[in-house]
Protein backbone atom coordinates (compact mmCIF):
# COMPACT_ATOMS: atom_id res chain seq x y z
CA UNK A 1 0.00 0.00 0.00
CA UNK A 2 3.04 2.20 0.37
CA UNK A 3 3.13 2.37 -3.42
CA UNK A 4 -0.09 4.36 -3.49
CA UNK A 5 1.13 7.25 -1.37
CA UNK A 6 3.94 8.55 -3.63
CA UNK A 7 1.70 7.93 -6.59
CA UNK A 8 -0.89 10.33 -5.25
CA UNK A 9 1.80 12.94 -4.63
CA UNK A 10 2.99 13.11 -8.25
CA UNK A 11 -0.38 13.85 -9.82
CA UNK A 12 0.49 17.38 -11.03
CA UNK A 13 3.72 16.13 -12.55
CA UNK A 14 1.79 13.34 -14.15
CA UNK A 15 -0.60 15.81 -15.74
CA UNK A 16 2.34 17.78 -17.10
CA UNK A 17 4.54 14.98 -18.39
CA UNK A 18 2.14 12.07 -18.82
CA UNK A 19 1.71 8.75 -17.04
CA UNK A 20 5.30 7.62 -17.64
CA UNK A 21 7.54 10.70 -17.67
CA UNK A 22 10.52 8.36 -17.97
CA UNK A 23 9.39 7.79 -21.55
CA UNK A 24 10.86 11.19 -22.35
CA UNK A 25 14.20 10.02 -21.00
CA UNK A 26 14.02 6.81 -23.05
CA UNK A 27 12.96 8.51 -26.29
CA UNK A 28 15.21 11.50 -25.56
CA UNK A 29 18.43 10.16 -27.13
CA UNK A 30 16.61 9.53 -30.38
CA UNK A 31 15.07 13.00 -30.32
CA UNK A 32 18.47 14.64 -29.66
CA UNK A 33 20.07 12.57 -32.41
CA UNK A 34 17.26 13.56 -34.74
CA UNK A 35 17.66 17.26 -33.93
CA UNK A 36 21.46 17.28 -34.35
CA UNK A 37 21.90 14.95 -37.32
CA UNK A 38 18.64 15.32 -39.17
CA UNK A 39 16.69 18.50 -38.45
CA UNK A 40 19.74 20.76 -38.18
CA UNK A 41 21.42 19.57 -41.41
CA UNK A 42 18.03 19.74 -43.13
CA UNK A 43 17.70 23.42 -42.21
CA UNK A 44 21.37 23.97 -42.96
CA UNK A 45 20.88 22.56 -46.48
CA UNK A 46 18.14 25.08 -47.15
CA UNK A 47 20.20 27.94 -45.61
CA UNK A 48 23.29 27.03 -47.65
CA UNK A 49 21.32 26.84 -50.88
CA UNK A 50 20.59 30.59 -50.60
CA UNK A 51 24.23 31.53 -49.96
CA UNK A 52 27.49 31.65 -51.82
CA UNK A 53 28.86 29.06 -49.43
CA UNK A 54 32.52 28.07 -49.59
CA UNK A 55 34.91 25.99 -47.49
CA UNK A 56 37.33 27.64 -45.07
CA UNK A 57 39.73 26.43 -42.41
CA UNK A 58 37.82 25.16 -39.37
CA UNK A 59 36.81 27.97 -37.04
CA UNK A 60 37.42 30.81 -39.46
CA UNK A 61 34.63 33.41 -39.31
CA UNK A 62 33.84 34.58 -42.81
CA UNK A 63 30.78 36.02 -44.40
CA UNK A 64 29.00 33.80 -46.90
CA UNK A 65 26.91 36.31 -48.82
CA UNK A 66 23.18 35.79 -49.28
CA UNK A 67 22.58 35.32 -53.00
CA UNK A 68 18.83 34.77 -53.02
CA UNK A 69 17.68 32.37 -55.70
CA UNK A 70 20.94 32.56 -57.69
CA UNK A 71 21.86 28.90 -57.05
CA UNK A 72 18.37 27.79 -58.07
CA UNK A 73 18.38 29.92 -61.21
CA UNK A 74 21.78 28.50 -62.12
CA UNK A 75 20.60 24.90 -61.90
CA UNK A 76 17.70 25.58 -64.25
CA UNK A 77 20.18 26.37 -67.01
CA UNK A 78 22.81 23.76 -66.10
CA UNK A 79 23.28 21.09 -68.79
CA UNK A 80 24.61 18.60 -66.23
CA UNK A 81 21.43 19.01 -64.18
CA UNK A 82 19.33 18.40 -67.30
CA UNK A 83 21.32 15.30 -68.12
CA UNK A 84 21.08 14.00 -64.54
CA UNK A 85 17.30 14.57 -64.58
CA UNK A 86 17.02 12.82 -67.96
CA UNK A 87 18.99 9.89 -66.53
CA UNK A 88 16.52 9.55 -63.66
CA UNK A 89 13.74 9.38 -66.28
CA UNK A 90 15.69 6.79 -68.32
CA UNK A 91 16.13 4.75 -65.17
CA UNK A 92 12.42 4.89 -64.31
CA UNK A 93 11.38 3.99 -67.87
CA UNK A 94 13.63 0.91 -67.85
CA UNK A 95 13.29 -0.06 -64.20
CA UNK A 96 9.56 0.20 -63.49
CA UNK A 97 8.14 -1.99 -66.30
CA UNK A 98 10.91 -4.59 -65.91
CA UNK A 99 10.52 -4.71 -62.14
CA UNK A 100 6.74 -4.96 -62.24
CA UNK A 101 6.70 -7.61 -64.97
CA UNK A 102 9.60 -9.77 -63.75
CA UNK A 103 8.70 -9.26 -60.10
CA UNK A 104 5.16 -10.44 -60.70
CA UNK A 105 6.21 -13.38 -62.88
CA UNK A 106 8.83 -14.63 -60.43
CA UNK A 107 6.54 -14.08 -57.43
CA UNK A 108 3.72 -16.01 -59.15
CA UNK A 109 6.14 -18.85 -59.91
CA UNK A 110 7.39 -18.78 -56.32
CA UNK A 111 3.79 -18.91 -55.08
CA UNK A 112 3.25 -22.48 -56.39
CA UNK A 113 3.99 -25.67 -54.53
CA UNK A 114 7.38 -26.53 -56.02
CA UNK A 115 10.51 -28.00 -54.47
CA UNK A 116 13.41 -25.76 -53.46
CA UNK A 117 11.43 -22.61 -52.73
CA UNK A 118 13.83 -21.56 -49.97
CA UNK A 119 16.77 -21.87 -52.35
CA UNK A 120 15.07 -19.64 -54.92
CA UNK A 121 14.02 -17.09 -52.31
CA UNK A 122 17.56 -16.84 -50.92
CA UNK A 123 19.12 -16.80 -54.37
CA UNK A 124 16.88 -14.00 -55.64
CA UNK A 125 17.56 -11.91 -52.58
CA UNK A 126 21.34 -12.25 -52.65
CA UNK A 127 22.08 -9.35 -55.03
CA UNK A 128 19.87 -7.07 -52.92
CA UNK A 129 21.84 -7.66 -49.71
CA UNK A 130 25.29 -7.64 -51.31
CA UNK A 131 27.58 -4.61 -51.34
CA UNK A 132 27.18 -2.50 -54.49
CA UNK A 133 30.95 -2.13 -54.78
CA UNK A 134 31.39 -5.93 -54.94
CA UNK A 135 28.68 -6.63 -57.51
CA UNK A 136 29.49 -3.54 -59.58
CA UNK A 137 33.02 -4.95 -59.89
CA UNK A 138 31.58 -8.09 -61.50
CA UNK A 139 29.35 -6.15 -63.89
CA UNK A 140 32.35 -4.03 -64.81
CA UNK A 141 34.16 -7.11 -66.08
CA UNK A 142 31.05 -8.63 -67.65
CA UNK A 143 30.26 -5.54 -69.74
CA UNK A 144 33.59 -3.89 -70.51
CA UNK A 145 35.08 -4.06 -74.01
CA UNK A 146 36.77 -7.42 -73.53
CA UNK A 147 34.22 -8.75 -71.04
CA UNK A 148 32.13 -11.91 -71.19
CA UNK A 149 28.97 -10.23 -72.52
CA UNK A 150 30.82 -8.44 -75.31
CA UNK A 151 32.56 -11.72 -76.16
CA UNK A 152 29.29 -13.61 -76.29
CA UNK A 153 27.63 -10.97 -78.45
CA UNK A 154 30.63 -10.88 -80.80
CA UNK A 155 29.95 -8.55 -83.67
CA UNK A 156 26.53 -7.69 -82.19
CA UNK A 157 28.10 -5.89 -79.24
CA UNK A 158 27.92 -2.10 -79.51
CA UNK A 159 30.87 -0.01 -80.58
CA UNK A 160 32.19 1.71 -78.50
CA UNK A 161 31.59 -0.99 -75.85
CA UNK A 162 28.64 -0.76 -73.43
CA UNK A 163 30.19 1.14 -70.54
CA UNK A 164 31.89 3.82 -72.64
CA UNK A 165 29.04 4.14 -75.14
CA UNK A 166 26.90 7.18 -74.39
CA UNK A 167 23.73 5.43 -75.61
CA UNK A 168 24.36 2.35 -73.44
CA UNK A 169 26.00 3.60 -70.23
CA UNK A 170 22.83 4.72 -68.46
CA UNK A 171 20.68 1.75 -69.60
CA UNK A 172 23.37 -0.60 -68.26
CA UNK A 173 23.25 1.19 -64.90
CA UNK A 174 19.45 0.89 -64.97
CA UNK A 175 19.70 -2.84 -65.76
CA UNK A 176 22.26 -3.30 -63.00
CA UNK A 177 20.04 -1.60 -60.40
CA UNK A 178 16.97 -3.50 -61.61
CA UNK A 179 18.87 -6.79 -61.30
CA UNK A 180 20.19 -5.88 -57.85
CA UNK A 181 16.83 -4.93 -56.40
CA UNK A 182 14.51 -7.33 -58.18
CA UNK A 183 14.76 -9.97 -55.44
CA UNK A 184 13.40 -7.51 -52.90
CA UNK A 185 10.41 -6.73 -55.11
CA UNK A 186 9.79 -10.43 -55.82
CA UNK A 187 9.27 -10.89 -52.09
CA UNK A 188 7.10 -7.76 -51.89
CA UNK A 189 4.93 -9.14 -54.72
CA UNK A 190 4.92 -12.61 -53.15
CA UNK A 191 3.58 -11.17 -49.89
CA UNK A 192 0.99 -9.16 -51.85
CA UNK A 193 -0.10 -12.29 -53.80
CA UNK A 194 -0.48 -14.27 -50.60
CA UNK A 195 -2.68 -11.50 -49.20
CA UNK A 196 -5.22 -11.85 -52.01
CA UNK A 197 -8.08 -13.94 -50.61
CA UNK A 198 -8.54 -17.24 -52.48
CA UNK A 199 -12.31 -16.62 -52.57
CA UNK A 200 -11.75 -13.83 -55.10
CA UNK A 201 -10.26 -16.32 -57.57
CA UNK A 202 -13.03 -18.82 -56.86
CA UNK A 203 -15.70 -16.16 -57.40
CA UNK A 204 -14.03 -15.13 -60.66
CA UNK A 205 -13.98 -18.80 -61.79
CA UNK A 206 -17.66 -19.14 -60.99
CA UNK A 207 -18.28 -16.04 -63.11
CA UNK A 208 -16.50 -17.82 -65.94
CA UNK A 209 -13.23 -15.89 -65.92
CA UNK A 210 -10.23 -17.64 -67.50
CA UNK A 211 -6.65 -17.54 -66.27
CA UNK A 212 -5.79 -14.33 -68.12
CA UNK A 213 -9.00 -12.58 -67.09
CA UNK A 214 -8.40 -13.59 -63.46
CA UNK A 215 -4.84 -12.24 -63.68
CA UNK A 216 -6.02 -8.79 -64.84
CA UNK A 217 -9.15 -8.57 -62.67
CA UNK A 218 -7.94 -10.14 -59.43
CA UNK A 219 -4.14 -10.36 -59.31
CA UNK A 220 -3.21 -6.95 -60.75
CA UNK A 221 -5.55 -4.92 -58.50
CA UNK A 222 -4.56 -7.12 -55.56
CA UNK A 223 -0.86 -6.29 -55.83
CA UNK A 224 -1.37 -2.58 -56.42
CA UNK A 225 0.25 -1.51 -53.11
CA UNK A 226 3.41 -3.35 -54.16
CA UNK A 227 3.36 -1.59 -57.54
CA UNK A 228 3.01 1.77 -55.78
CA UNK A 229 6.13 0.92 -53.82
CA UNK A 230 8.05 0.06 -57.02
CA UNK A 231 7.16 3.42 -58.58
CA UNK A 232 7.96 5.48 -55.49
CA UNK A 233 11.26 3.76 -54.78
CA UNK A 234 12.33 3.96 -58.44
CA UNK A 235 12.27 7.75 -58.26
CA UNK A 236 14.37 7.76 -55.11
CA UNK A 237 16.83 5.11 -56.33
CA UNK A 238 17.25 6.86 -59.69
CA UNK A 239 18.20 10.12 -58.00
CA UNK A 240 20.55 8.47 -55.51
CA UNK A 241 22.93 6.57 -57.81
CA UNK A 242 26.51 7.10 -56.81
CA UNK A 243 28.48 3.85 -56.63
CA UNK A 244 27.15 2.74 -60.03
CA UNK A 245 28.13 5.75 -62.18
CA UNK A 246 31.27 6.32 -60.10
CA UNK A 247 32.66 2.82 -60.63
CA UNK A 248 30.75 1.20 -63.50
CA UNK A 249 30.93 4.04 -66.01
CA UNK A 250 34.09 5.73 -64.75
CA UNK A 251 32.48 8.68 -62.98
CA UNK A 252 29.21 9.17 -64.87
CA UNK A 253 30.84 8.86 -68.29
CA UNK A 254 31.19 8.93 -71.17
CA UNK A 255 31.00 12.73 -71.19
CA UNK A 256 28.48 12.81 -68.37
CA UNK A 257 26.05 10.51 -70.21
CA UNK A 258 25.43 8.47 -67.06
CA UNK A 259 25.71 11.20 -64.44
CA UNK A 260 23.26 11.00 -61.54
CA UNK A 261 21.94 13.80 -59.32
CA UNK A 262 23.92 12.63 -56.30
CA UNK A 263 27.13 12.23 -58.32
CA UNK A 264 26.59 15.76 -59.60
CA UNK A 265 26.12 17.00 -56.03
CA UNK A 266 29.36 15.29 -55.03
CA UNK A 267 31.24 16.92 -57.90
CA UNK A 268 29.82 20.40 -57.37
CA UNK A 269 29.68 20.39 -53.59
CA UNK A 270 32.82 18.54 -52.59
CA UNK A 271 35.21 18.28 -55.55
CA UNK A 272 34.63 21.77 -56.91
CA UNK A 273 33.85 23.48 -53.60
CA UNK A 274 30.36 24.84 -54.36
CA UNK A 275 28.38 23.34 -51.48
CA UNK A 276 25.74 26.07 -51.76
CA UNK A 277 25.00 25.08 -55.34
CA UNK A 278 25.07 21.38 -54.48
CA UNK A 279 22.66 22.02 -51.61
CA UNK A 280 20.31 23.81 -54.02
CA UNK A 281 20.36 20.74 -56.27
CA UNK A 282 19.67 18.56 -53.23
CA UNK A 283 16.75 20.68 -52.03
CA UNK A 284 15.20 20.80 -55.51
CA UNK A 285 15.56 17.05 -55.90
CA UNK A 286 14.18 16.27 -52.48
CA UNK A 287 11.13 18.43 -53.19
CA UNK A 288 10.57 16.73 -56.56
CA UNK A 289 11.09 13.24 -55.15
CA UNK A 290 8.79 13.81 -52.19
CA UNK A 291 6.22 15.52 -54.40
CA UNK A 292 6.25 12.61 -56.86
CA UNK A 293 5.94 10.11 -54.02
CA UNK A 294 2.88 11.89 -52.70
CA UNK A 295 1.42 12.22 -56.19
CA UNK A 296 2.05 8.53 -56.97
CA UNK A 297 0.51 7.44 -53.73
CA UNK A 298 -2.47 9.70 -54.32
CA UNK A 299 -3.04 8.66 -57.95
CA UNK A 300 -2.62 4.95 -57.32
CA UNK A 301 -4.86 5.08 -54.29
CA UNK A 302 -7.54 6.97 -56.22
CA UNK A 303 -7.95 4.28 -58.85
Amino acid sequence: MAALAPDAGVKPRRRLLGKHPIGLLFAGPYLIYWLLLFAYPLGFAVYMSFRDYFFTAPGAQVDRPFVGLENYIRLIGDDDVHRAALNVVIFIVINVPLTVALGLILATALNTAIPGRTFFRVGFYLPYVSASVAVVAVWLYLFNGSGLVSNLLGSLSPDPPFLINSAWAMPIIALFATWKQLGFYVLVYLAALQNIPGELYEAASVDGAGTIRKFWSVTVPGVRPATTLVVILATIVGANFFTEPYLLTGGGGPNGASISPVLLMYRQGIEQGNPGYAAAIGVTLAIIVMGLSLLNRFLLDEE
Partner: peptide, 18 residues
Protein backbone atom coordinates in the same frame (compact mmCIF):
# COMPACT_ATOMS: atom_id res chain seq x y z
CA UNK B 1 10.63 10.01 -46.03
CA UNK B 2 13.37 12.64 -46.43
CA UNK B 3 16.02 11.26 -48.78
CA UNK B 4 19.64 11.09 -47.57
CA UNK B 5 20.92 13.05 -50.57
CA UNK B 6 19.45 16.22 -49.10
CA UNK B 7 21.57 15.78 -45.98
CA UNK B 8 24.78 14.69 -47.69
CA UNK B 9 26.32 18.12 -48.28
CA UNK B 10 25.41 19.73 -44.92
CA UNK B 11 26.52 16.60 -43.03
CA UNK B 12 29.81 16.69 -44.91
CA UNK B 13 30.33 20.36 -43.99
CA UNK B 14 29.42 19.73 -40.34
CA UNK B 15 31.26 16.49 -39.71
CA UNK B 16 34.33 16.92 -41.88
CA UNK B 17 34.83 20.71 -41.95
CA UNK B 18 33.46 21.94 -38.62
Amino acid sequence: IVPFMLLMIPLYVMIVRW
